[in-house]
Each structure stands twice: as C-alpha cells, then as structure tokens.
Design a protein around this nucleic acid. Structure first.
Lengths: 148, 148
DNA sequence: GGCTGATAAGTGTAACCTACATCTATTATG
DNA sequence: CATAATAGATGTAGGTTACACTTATCAGCC
C-alpha cells in the first residue's frame, strides 16, 4: 500500500551539518562522508619513502589527501594494520631512536600491486568525476558557478 | 604496553573479496566501498530532466555514475526520500499513466544550490585524484602501468 | 625524584552507510 | 488466473567514520 507523499517516515535520518569546518565553503562533511581514501595514499607514501611509521605518515598524508577532509590518526593506524593483515605491508619495531618505539612499515610486492590496482580505479573515477562536473556545470550555468 | 608486531588483533577485519564483478579488472569492491555518490547524480538528472520518478532515474543513473559500481535501487529510493527531508527536492504522486503510481520528484531552489555545492566538492576531488594518479603512476613506473 | 610536553601507537563506540534480499502493489498480456 | 513488467519501499548484517580517549616512552626542567 503506497503511503501519502506527506508521510515521509524515519527510516533515513537527516545527515548532520558540518560542525567542524566552519562552513566557509562546501566541504565533504556537509555532503555526506567522503572521509576515506587513506589506504591508497598510505601505500603511495610507503612506496615513495621506502618505509615509514604511522605517526610520520600522518604528518605528510594531509598534503596528498584525495578529499578536503582531515586525516584521522586512528583511522590511519587501523588502515596500516589492515594492510598488514592483507599482506600488503610488513612491519617491524624500531627502537633505535629516542622516544617511544616505532612500528615501521614497508610495502610488500603484493602491496605494490595493490597500489597499482588502486591507481587504475582512481584514474577511472577521476575521469568520471570530471565528466560529471563538466556536465553539471553546463546544466547549472557557468556564470552561476563563477559568481558562487 | 606495546604489543608484539606478530599479534595483530581482530579489531579491523579483512574486507571481503569482490564476489560480484568477476575479477576481470580491479573494481571498487576490491578496494573497499566506493558505492555512493548517488545523491549528486540524482540531483543532476532532476535538473537536466526537469522531473522524474525513481524507477526512471535508476535506468539512466548508471550512465552517469561516478564509480564503476552498480546502482542500488534501494539506496536510490532512500536517497530521494532523504533529499526530500532535507528540502532539496519535492515530490508528488502521478497516477495518470498505466501501471503503479509514480512518485515524481523535482528540484527545489535549495536542491539546485546543493548540486552546485556538490559540484564544487567533486571538482576539487577530481583534481586531487588526478594529481594523486599522476604521482603514483610516476612512482610505479609508466611501463609497469601500461603492461598491466 | 616529580612534572610537563612531545612523540608514538592504539582502543572504544555511537552513528551511519552499503549491499543485498525481500516485500507490496498495480497493470498488461496470455 | 498466472506471469511479467513496472514502481516503490523496507529489513538487516556487517562494515566504516569521526571523534574522544588511553597507554607508553623519553627529554628537559626544576
């Protein structure tokens, strides 16, 4: 039995407003969650640097982020352990320097292959995104886009 | 107390392999969930077509998808109701044609603004993605990428 | 020794999202 | 009446996110 169009129901709650990024511009939060893509960037950084520990990766991760979201350190550590479970990275403790021990990760061959797969997926996605942005901008009107 | 590097724990389970897309190429499933982005495409289609009902949108949504994932019809209907709750679309029943009644959606001014915001977010994201793909491809080696 | 701060790794969890299966109803066709 | 196409919607296990919080080591300082 089809319900009244007025009775909307509660099966899908409203997404919260972004309480973090101030609202100076549309951010991923307001759009729904796009906070992710830590994995490919972590893999890339490990390939580029040879090896690194989590805390070190967190510092540079932001510069290579695929969205405008901030990096969640907890998420990064969990991503690294997950990559280890999948066999894409290996780790060993480094206690040589001062300060607490560091778990130093490096890519395995399977990790390199995984990054290659990620790259293919993201390349396609980038193309699909830019095609969408082109179409949508056309429909919205270029002038309107430029004037905010 | 820092645990042994061997003891990985179970707080982050392995993601399942993709059981849907056959494995002929790396798909979003294998990478983790990128099934989403229904919302901006639905908004765009409503702008382009003027108005449409869900079943109709589902048919063309695939062509404009932002990832290579298949569209989930349940997700589409929930997205439309959610957009209605947020005031970005309005709906009314159409019982004029044959077959079951159709809930016909159209954009509100706020929906147009929301699509504009989405477009800005996705434009940035597309740029960040393509920069990442460029960097990662460089690090992986172009030859390796071409040869699979 | 005790205190503070930087470094480093990790855990807990409510809320949320996804993917898939399933259900209801209407109309047309045989 | 059975079947299929159309159309909308719901149920849910399991996975993810964002944020808060905890544990631990070491250096510098008093």
């Amino acid at each position: 039995m089809q319900t009244e169009p007025e009775g909307i129901g509660t099966y899908h709650r409203l997404r919260g407003q972004c309480r973090r990024h101030g609202g100076d511009r549309p951010c991923t939060c307001a759009m729904g969650n796009l906070y992710r893509f830590i994995e490919p960037v972590a893999l890339y950084l490990l390939l580029a640097k040879g090896s690194a520990h989590g805390y070190e990766l967190a510092a540079v991760l932001q510069d290579h982020q695929l969205t405008d979201a901030e990096v969640d350190r907890g998420g990064l550590y969990r991503t690294l352990r997950s990559l280890e479970q999948m066999g894409h990275v290996g780790s060993q403790w480094d206690v040589s320097g001062g300060g607490p021990a560091r778990r130093v990760y490096s890519l395995t061959p399977s990790g390199v292959a995984h990054l290659r797969e990620w790259t293919e997926v993201l390349a396609r996605m980038s193309e699909q995104l830019s095609a969408f942005v082109r179409d949508a901008s056309g429909e919205l009107g270029e002038a309107g886009l430029r004037n905010g």
